[in-house]
Design a protein around this nucleic acid. Structure first.
Lengths: 116, 116
DNA sequence: CGATATACCTCACCTGTCAAGGTATCTCAG
DNA sequence: CTGAGATACCTTGACAGGTGAGGTATATCG
């Protein structure tokens, strides 16, 4: 019951930024949160997650630092930046827009007289 | 004011099938219809449109035939097949699903106690 | 000691979009 | 008649994002 990869394309960055808006976090935790929010119906593939981090950091939308836990596996934490916040807002607007446009295209149009 | 190509990815086939549900049509006309339905805010790029036709025909979701107009440029008409109709219904369901999942992921979660 | 969970990472491959280029017909202005 | 623009089709190569498969390391539990 996963989303087709072509459908989530272009929304993964938005998902990650949305999570970071609520505070610094790290890869595994972000994915766990996504799993929980969707009732176990969706999660990002690890490769997708980490390539997204690279991309977002390169664009200046997030920054990272290593956590200082003394036990357990090391964690790389991410912080959303000011440009990242702006980018998130813009991407949500774009997403709402795209949803409306696509819906208007696929919704059936009543056709009284259909000559064929 | 176009949709980011990463956002429409995976919906173009659905758009085309939606149009063909209302009767046979050809490339140029489908794109014109999309432009009209969206109030000139969106249209498929030609390369995208025609690669989608190839893909859909190969999957057996549409079939094609040449129109017999005696004047003007020739037109290749497309018909949606029975499997195509089923695929369309499935893709709409998937799309509705994806929309809901993505929205649930990006929507802000109220956090009463936010330390930091 | 091996399995499982946490936690990170990279590489090669696949697929869909798109810019750029091409063909051919018809109409209309000059 | 000639050139521009609209109609209408098509292909190729480049590009970008998702993903399977593979890898590393630590802690815990039986």
């Amino acid at each position: 019951m996963s989303i087709a990869s072509d459908l989530i394309r272009g929304t993964t960055d938005m998902m990650i930024l949305a999570h970071l808006l609520e505070g610094d976090s790290y890869g595994y935790d972000i994915n766990k949160s996504i799993r929980m929010r969707t009732g176990d119906r969706f999660e990002l593939k690890e490769a997708t997650l980490y390539t997204a981090f690279r991309r977002l950091e390169q664009q200046g939308y997030i920054s990272s630092y290593w956590g200082d836990e003394e036990s357990g596996a090391r964690r790389r934490y991410y912080t959303i930046t000011s440009p990242g916040r702006k980018a998130f807002i813009a991407s949500v607007r774009e997403w709402e827009n795209a949803k409306a446009l696509i819906d208007s295209i696929i919704q059936p149009h009543s056709k009284d007289s259909k000559d064929e």
